[in-house]
Simulated assay, not measured.
Amino acid sequence: MEIPVFTLDAFTNLPFKGNPAAICPLMHELSDDLYQKISAEMNLSETAFITRINPSDSFTTGSRFRLRWFTPTNEVNLCGHATLASAAVLFKHKQNENPKLVFETLSGDLAVTQQGEGYIMDFPLNPPTKEDANEFRDIIKAAVGNHPIQDVYLSSNTKKLLVRLADSCDRSVLTSLKVDPVALQSSETSGRVKGVIITMKGSPDCQPGYDFYSRFFSPWNGIPEDPVTGSAHTVLGSYWSKKLGKKKMLAYQCSSRGGELELEVRDDGRINISGQAVTVLQGTITL
């Protein structure tokens, strides 16, 4: 059996920046075990599998597809960068003729529309709730050490803990954090948290005008640090929209690779997440 595979860097227009995802467009469903083995082999934060819903559709003519995402260790419910990369494969490499694609996923229908050089994803918004920092003392210590923090919020349905650094911190505090994934994972074993977002207020007055910065760590899902995380911005977008009083924001994820996301919090309780993607590899998995 031969399976086509594409590796794309998402939320960037430059190769080797943004977040790499492996995308496999499949003519037939495979077993979950095989999906997991392929994802472990690709060893990226996510590998996505696109399958046709209507057998009479092709990847060029179809407008609705099934989409699943796997980390090297498990399946996940929502992944932004691999959704962006999946749409880019269909639009760029399969010359899909539809203006909008809809993916049926574990997080419901996710629509992606082409816009110029980039893509707009219609995602659920995941508003977090304010928490007592003392309840998460160990995990906060493992994440940010002794740096001062301003807010702790939890998105219980995504299991993402948001830790905001104090405004007195310079951006270099965020970029220079050394987070030990083993210590982080062992600091939280209750199952309430599966990912930690560390964020801080941006510099909207300095070009290109980022409203906020973030980093994201998810060793519980086999991802020590994720370079650019669409799903985390379903939480960040909600939080910062309220704090800044803005619907439209420009965000930068400060991993070593770095990536940029345009956000628009909508009145219908969803969020548009926009970005670009660049193909760095095309090949065939032979089984």
Rank of each mutant, 00 (worst) to 15 (best):
V76I: 06
V76H: 01
N77A: 11
N77Y: 07
L78E: 02
C79Q: 00
G80N: 08
G80V: 08
G80D: 02
G80M: 02
G80P: 05
H81I: 15
A82L: 07
A82G: 08
T83F: 00
A85I: 12
A85M: 07
A85D: 07
S86K: 12
A87E: 04
V89P: 01
F91I: 11
F91A: 04
F91V: 09
H93M: 15
Q95E: 06
E97N: 09
N98G: 05
P99V: 04
P99R: 03
K100G: 03
K100W: 05
L101R: 10
L101Q: 06
V102E: 00
V102F: 04
V102H: 03
F103K: 07
F103Q: 05
E104G: 15
T105P: 07
L106K: 09
L106S: 10
L106F: 00
L106Q: 08
S107I: 08
S107A: 09
G108D: 02
G108S: 01
G108Q: 05
L110I: 14
A111W: 02
V112R: 03
V112G: 09
T113H: 14
T113N: 15
T113Y: 11
Q114S: 13
Q115R: 12
Q115I: 11
Q115A: 15
Q115M: 09
G116W: 04
G116M: 06
G116L: 03
G116E: 03
E117M: 13
E117W: 09
G118Y: 05
Y119T: 13
Y119Q: 12
Y119P: 12
D122I: 03
F123V: 11
F123C: 06
F123L: 10
P124F: 01
P124M: 02
N126G: 14
P127Y: 00
P127W: 00
P128W: 01
P128C: 08
T129Y: 01
K130I: 13
K130Y: 07
E131M: 15
E131A: 13
E131I: 12
D132R: 14
A133W: 14
N134S: 14
F136V: 06
R137M: 13
R137H: 15
R137D: 07
R137Q: 15
D138Q: 15
D138R: 15
K141Y: 15
K141G: 13
K141C: 11
A142G: 14
A143R: 08
V144G: 00
G145A: 10
G145F: 10
H147C: 10
H147E: 09
H147T: 12
P148G: 05
Q150Y: 13
D151P: 07
D151F: 13
V152T: 03
V152F: 05
V152M: 01
Y153P: 04
L154Q: 02
L154W: 04
S155C: 11
S155I: 00
S155K: 03
S156R: 09
N157H: 10
T158Q: 00
K159L: 04
K160A: 13
L161K: 03
L161V: 08
L162D: 00
V163F: 07
A166T: 15
D167V: 14
S168H: 08
S168Q: 12
C169E: 08
C169Y: 08
C169T: 11
C169Q: 06
V173G: 02
V173F: 07
L174Q: 03
T175H: 06
S176C: 11
S176G: 08
L177A: 01
L177G: 00
